[in-house]
């Protein structure tokens, strides 16, 4: 598990207006909370934050004004286009306490069903696990090579490293399905005619006078 250092600064600009001004200068507003201590509002350079994200680190060491705290990246807000980072949430962690976090799930192997013409669909891409901060896995893997067409793999089939526990209550949730290929069936002309019809209108019934006009 990669660990990274992120240099941050304390900030005075608060709220949406202040945050917007910060973003214009290439900074990202950050908040640090947790472990029953006070919240601290911080800021960091967008480029530095992106580098940390690129490294894949989940536990980040935040440094500012001769202070250092270990934190877990809890949440990231992106703009509507999913391009720019708007805000980052960090939660303090104790290295000896177990934490809950979401970890990416990757499918391993080519299912038997896919070679027979099926389509592999991953229905769950992240799983909620509990582990010590020192034992956070980069990814979890599920072996799908044995799946035939119509088969599915549940959370029970996810291989977990030692010290990592699944938090999901229901372990029967499917994570991958090998679906039958859907064949395009030529539609009869009658359906095309039906499609051209207008949808049913749920409004008040027309008054008697209107009906009479329509009949004319």
């Amino acid at each position: 598990m990669a660990s990274n250092v992120l240099t941050v600064e304390t900030r005075d600009l608060l709220g949406s207006r202040g945050s917007r001004r910060l973003r214009r200068t290439g900074k990202v507003p950050v908040v640090l909370y947790g472990l029953r201590k006070d919240n601290i509002v911080l800021l960091t350079a967008e480029r530095a934050l992106k580098e940390v994200l690129k490294s894949g680190a989940r536990i980040v060491s935040l440094r500012w004004d001769n202070q250092e705290e270990m934190a877990l990246l809890k949440d990231l807000q992106y703009d509507a286009m999913g391009r720019e980072i708007l805000h980052a949430d960090f939660v303090r962690i104790a290295m000896d306490k177990r934490i809950e976090l979401r970890v990416h799930l990757e499918l391993k192997g080519t299912p038997v069903g896919v070679t027979e013409g099926g389509v592999l669909e991953q229905t769950l891409r992240e799983v909620l696990v509990e582990c010590l901060p020192t034992a956070i896995p980069d990814k979890l893997f599920a072996d799908v090579s044995g799946l035939k067409v119509g088969d599915s793999l549940t959370l029970k089939g996810v291989s977990l490293p030692s010290g990592v526990k699944l938090v999901h209550e229901n372990l029967d949730i499917p994570v991958a399905i090998v679906r039958k290929p859907v064949e395009e069936v030529a539609k009869p002309a009658v359906e095309e005619e039906e499609a051209a019809k207008e949808p049913e209108v749920i409004t008040r019934k027309p008054k008697e006078g209107e009906e009479a006009e329509e009949e004319k």
Partner: peptide, 12 residues
């Protein structure tokens, strides 16, 4: 088949 609502409250 072209997509279209089945039922609508108003036509326009």
């Amino acid at each position: 088949m072209r997509l279209m609502p089945r039922r609508v409250k108003f036509r326009k």
